Simulated scan of single mutants.
Amino acid sequence: MNTARIVVLAIAVGAGGIAAFLVSGSDKPAAPAAQLPTVDVLVAKSDIGLGQSVKPEDLQWQTWPAATASNTFIRRGDRPDATTQIAGEIARAPFIAGEPIREQKLVKADGSGFMAAILPSGMRAVSTEISPETGAGGFILPNDRVDVILSKHEKNAGRAGAADTINSEIILSNIRVLAIDQAPKEKDGQTAVVGKTVTLELKPEQTEALARARQSGTLSLALRSIADVNIVESNSDDQVRRRGDSVNVVRYGVSTQTTIQK
């Protein structure tokens, strides 16, 4: 056997040995992955709408990574009977399926109606009549924010036989809508509620301004952008946007006269 054949044979034997070693190494079981600590938290089994009374069948326990479980979550280790303890409470904000239950979004009715249960301390729920024309075409839903506009006819005393003038002014700004008619939530997938009555969340002094305005003219609602919820109101927000007009700004029942120059 010549030298070349011996070298080729040696290389083949070496390659075979390496392959056998790699195959035998692949048969070893993989190291088990590290198990993250978990806890069982209470979540919504299905969607829970605004104003819905929570039932035990609406809830379930779900495994959750302990590192990401907030202190506001309800844990089975702390409250194993939470599903029955929470039953009967009212959702003051919607839950989506799989969302952890937080008691800050629930309220005990204690025999009171839904509206009295969800109304913040010091606030009042006041209803007033609307129509599709004065209610943004029916596109105002509970929890939206609106401006309340008063429009009224005034006789032109300056010239005999002159036509009456119509003055409009924003009397309340950034007001939360609690309900349209008696529906505090969307039903059957509706995206609009065309009602005849709107219930607004007002401060006591605002209720007085609204009551006076109802007797003096027609009320309209202007739907605000959701991005405006946290905007701090200023006097400029209550001005009519037409230049050269004299604007009577009424804020919480206090009337002031403002003129916008051209």
Rank of each mutant, 00 (worst) to 15 (best):
S121G: 11
K108S: 13
S112N: 15
R145T: 11
A109V: 10
G122F: 02
A116T: 14
Q104N: 14
S112A: 14
K105L: 12
V148F: 02
M115W: 08
I101T: 04
I130P: 01
I140R: 02
I130V: 13
G98L: 09
S121M: 10
N143V: 13
R124M: 10
D147L: 00
P120T: 10
R145V: 06
I149L: 14
S151A: 15
I149D: 08
S131P: 02
E99C: 05
I140F: 01
A117K: 03
E129F: 06
V146Q: 05
A136L: 09
F114V: 12
L106C: 04
G138A: 11
E133A: 15
E99T: 11
V107Y: 07
G98M: 09
G135H: 06
S112Q: 15
M115R: 12
E133L: 15
G98H: 07
S151R: 12
I130A: 03
K108G: 05
I118W: 00
I118S: 06
I149F: 11
V148C: 03
L106A: 00
G122P: 03
I130R: 00
I101H: 03
M115F: 13
A136K: 07
R124F: 04
D144W: 02
N143P: 01
A116H: 08
P142L: 09
A109H: 01
M123D: 11
P142C: 10
E103N: 13
G137A: 11
A117G: 04
L150A: 01
V146P: 02
S131T: 15
E133Q: 15
V146R: 01
R124W: 00
I118C: 00
V126Y: 08
L141G: 06
D110C: 02
P120E: 10
K108V: 11
